[in-house]
Write a protein that binds this DNA or RNA. Structure first.
Length: 560
RNA sequence: UGGGGUGUAGCCAAGCGGUAAGGCACGGGACUUUGACUCCCGCAUUCGUAGGUUCAAAUCCUGCCACCCCAGCCA
């Protein structure tokens, strides 16, 4: 019996792996003494949930193998980068719960990049090209036709040395010269057709200022930076697969590192109804479609955090989706599951009414109140409790009353009974409508013997409620996805800009129990049966604001 | 039409020659003072496709098909 259980458990542990973990494990088994990874974003925008996958993989692998992981800013393009993004990235990584061993900047390696390029020149493996950008493009060839060699390809080492120094010294205008790796203009891999590795660019870098007027390209800076940091496993996304031969070429030919890094690629994260492109996200911010990078609708880590997704849920999600090489689109329901699961165990249960409907208890005297105890976590006394006054006038959810309900409606109906959570069973004895026929109030009586905890008859439905005397007005923001459903025949396959969901935000004015007033930003609660909500920093103690994190499963809603 | 990748259920994803893990979603049931949670049960005779090798193929071989990435002085 015990043996069997153990065997099954061990088997489960064995299968919890992915190909990258297997690879590192076998590297370690083969004698590699060190595991060093890095997460290398360019600080040109905010990180999103897709980056969380890369963060979890890079930091996670280091953690699993007792190795180290650096946070490196891949800042080799001064035109796009900013310190604002650096700070946001640091906050996001910390928020996810990871600690970097070193905070690095590609810009700190500029001198070493330069020296590495000089080595290539001395070896006759790099040359200064005088062609214009257009000429370079035109002579690169096409997918099917080889490129043609530049007239400047066979300059002498001396000439290249002098010219490259002059480039650095600022003797040439932007775009007039580049340094190219001398590889093979006929290579079937376009990345190997003498790629540009340095360009002249006069832009003030957010860190190095105007120290440099030449900047290394990603294809050169990245492998060299990895090698400088002693990275053992350079884990990146699939689109860099074609660049790997160049990566290896650079490290090998500069030749300074006996134990060079190796690149391994995995599929980037895509998710249904979600935009996963810095370019589009930046567009949404710039054109005012959202309030900013941290708008709770945004899939950015800052947005997700503000929405109320707990970092542990993101980490769990990244575990759950696995690591592989096939392009895939993960169902956002999986993320929501992780969020619900995490919050279900941690978020206090609170009463709030999103769309209020007045209930009057006709056999309860006016001006009389009774304290009702509400547990923070039913079944867990240690989590504490608070009270709210039960009185003659209460608010319930407008959707919880139906004048003429279908068969399986368990909530309030004319002549029907329900329990008010933690309070009494009430019976509907009438309701009032306005001129348009809309229900504006429900009249009930309560059963004095049915106080919560009492052994009386069971009723099918239990409603959440807020007493009119204690209710605090709150602004409640109900968020939906930024994009229309993927299977919408109207917009399927279209560009993001044509798939924007016009109803991604609904603001309603609800009533919440007093314990919810003045809550701290970031705290999440379960509003009974409605969903999880997070206190937003926009709120005040008098008028709190809550963002819906995710809804609860609702089998009744599904029936309808 | 060049090169590099990938195809296992509605969606992720294990599997690496011995007879299709797991999760999400979905359906059914139990429980319930949240129609939540939890707990049971069900959910691929078949692995893009057509052949071949083998006692045995998702796994090996061959052909074909589909999808993704690459022609920035972006990363």
């Amino acid at each position: 019996m015990h043996n069997e259980d153990n065997t099954r458990e061990n088997a489960a542990v064995e299968t919890g792996r992915n190909f990258i973990e297997d690879m590192i494990a076998s590297d370690v088994a083969a004698g590699k003494m060190r595991v060093q990874t890095r997460f290398p974003p360019e600080p040109n925008g905010y990180l999103h949930i897709g980056h969380a996958k890369a963060i979890c993989i890079n930091f996670g692998m280091a953690e699993k193998f007792g190795g180290k992981c650096n946070l490196r800013m891949d800042d080799t393009n001064p035109a796009k980068e900013d310190i604002e993004y650096v700070e946001a990235i640091k906050r996001n990584v910390e928020w996810l719960g990871f600690r970097w061993d070193a905070l690095c900047f590609a810009s700190d390696y500029y001198e070493k990049h330069y020296e590495s390029a000089c080595i290539l020149i001395e070896k006759g493996l790099a040359y200064v090209d005088d062609q214009s950008g257009e000429e370079i493009r035109a002579t690169r060839g096409t997918l099917t036709a080889p490129g043609t060699e530049s007239l400047w390809r066979n300059r002498s080492v001396e000439e290249n040395r002098v010219l490259f120094q002059a480039m650095r010294a600022g003797e040439f205008p932007d775009g007039s010269k580049v340094l190219r790796a001398k590889i093979d203009m006929a290579s079937p891999n376009i990345n190997m057709r003498d790629p540009v590795i340095y360009r002249v660019l006069r832009a003030t870098h957010y860190r190095s200022g105007d120290d440099w007027c030449i900047y290394p390209m990603y294809d050169f800076a990245h492998p060299i930076s990895d090698a400088i940091e002693g990275i053992t496993h350079s884990l990146c996304t699939l689109e860099f697969e074609d660049h790997r031969p160049l990566y290896d070429w650079a490290v090998e030919n500069v030749g300074l590192w006996p134990d060079p890094p190796h690149q391994t690629e995995f599929a980037r994260l895509n998710m249904t109804r979600t935009i996963m492109s810095k370019r589009y996200l930046k567009m949404l911010v710039d054109n005012g479609s959202v309030a900013g990078w941290d708008d709770p609708r945004m899939p950015t880590l800052s947005g997700i955090r503000r929405r109320g997704f707990p970092p542990a849920a993101i980490r769990r999600f990244c575990e759950m989706i696995g690591v592989a090489k096939s392009n895939s689109v993960v169902d956002a329901a999986m993320l929501e599951y992780c969020v619900r699961d995490e919050l279900g165990a941690k978020a206090h249960r609170m009463m709030a009414v999103v769309k209020p409907l007045k209930v009057t208890i006709e056999n309860w005297p006016e001006g009389v109140y009774e304290d009702v105890v509400l547990e923070n976590m039913p079944g867990d006394e240690a989590a504490g409790s608070r009270t709210m006054r039960f009185g003659r006038e209460l608010w319930i959810e407008a959707d919880d009353f139906m004048e003429d309900p279908p068969k399986k409606f368990f909530r309030l109906r004319p002549d029907g009974e329900v329990r008010l959570k933690n309070a009494y069973i009430i019976k509907c004895v009438g309701f009032d409508v306005d001129e348009s026929g809309k229900v504006i109030g429900v009249r009930c009586t309560y059963d004095p013997d049915s106080k919560s905890g009492a052994e009386v008859r069971k009723v099918k439905g239990t409603l959440h409620w807020v007493s009119a005397a204690d209710a605090v007005d709150a602004e409640i923001r109900l968020y939906d996805y930024l994009l229309l459903p993927d299977d919408d025949p109207e917009t399927a396959g279209k560009d993001f800009s044509e798939r924007m969901n016009p109803n991604s935000l609904e603001v309603v004015h609800g009533k919440v129990e007093p314990a919810l007033a003045g809550r701290n930003e970031g705290e999440s609660f379960q509003f009974m049966r409605i969903g999880y909500f997070c206190a937003d920093p926009d709120g005040t103690p008098e008028k709190p604001v809550f963002n819906r994190v995710v809804g609860l499963k609702d089998s009744w809603a599904k029936q309808k």
